[in-house]
Amino acid sequence: MIHLTNVTKMFDRFQAIRGVNMTVQKGRIYGLLGSNGAGKTTLLKMMAGIIRPDHGTVLIDGEEVWENPEIKQRILFLPDHVYFFPHTTIEQMAAFYESVYPSFQRERFTRLQELFLLDPRKKIHQFSKGMQRQAAFWLAFSTMPDVLIMDEPLDGLDAVVRQKVKNIIVQEVAEREMTVVISSHNLREMEDLCDCIGILHGGEMLFEKELDAMKTDIHKIQVAFRNGIPEQFAKQLDIVYKEQRGSVLLLIVRGAKQEIISYIQPFQPLIFDILPLTLEEIFIYEMGDVGYAIENIIV
């Protein structure tokens, strides 16, 4: 479990992270969303023990990550610009990872070659950017970390590889309860992968929620009544958004589906549809005023 408590970080006079609290349960995939400069990378580097927070604590399984080799042996950080030692081959890098991470598995490395189709004896710097990223994934998955932290990992990969990588991640999480933190500025990409979403904006955590709970918790309703809207109708509902289109009333309402239905039925509406929201819609409605600021993440 990853647990951040009231974490802050200043770069010179720029406050990059402002009192962030964040929790990632074991065996979950956590999507950290935010526009450019929101502080995603800084937060991830703190979890990886690269940056030390000015205040607050970053704990993994109850222990500080900073300067803690025992914990760091179980974490792997995949940066947005992958790094390899100059003039090394994947084979040499694998040997290095093997010497540094006790969890590294040779057989797995050999097995994964079929998936990535890269020549392990070729110098990594001769590879294209996308291939370098694949190489990084190959090494990361061979290391078998308990916690995998990835900074915008899917950028620059083609659709096929992207799917392959996603599959491995999901598989690892399912099989051995690997914990994953992924940052992204693209909500759609995260939608089918993550269990949990956090939105970071201007160094602050705006919002942190389980995706399933979110989807079952908010609904779009269209109703119409024969004699106009009954006076008592809206009073008992937790309305997030309301719009009248002719005689049809469009509502975004919080609450359990069944409760809403059983509340509305007695009013005997002429039309009554209850629909799920897309993730994008949820964000826009949930976040209200700040929603406009993070629109670019959502679209």
Binding site: G49, I50, I71, K72, I75, F77, H81
Partner: peptide, 11 residues
């Protein structure tokens, strides 16, 4: 990039 890499190692 190199400093991030080296400091992410369990050393």
């Amino acid at each position: 990039q190199s400093v991030d890499f080296m400091h992410s190692l369990p050393v």
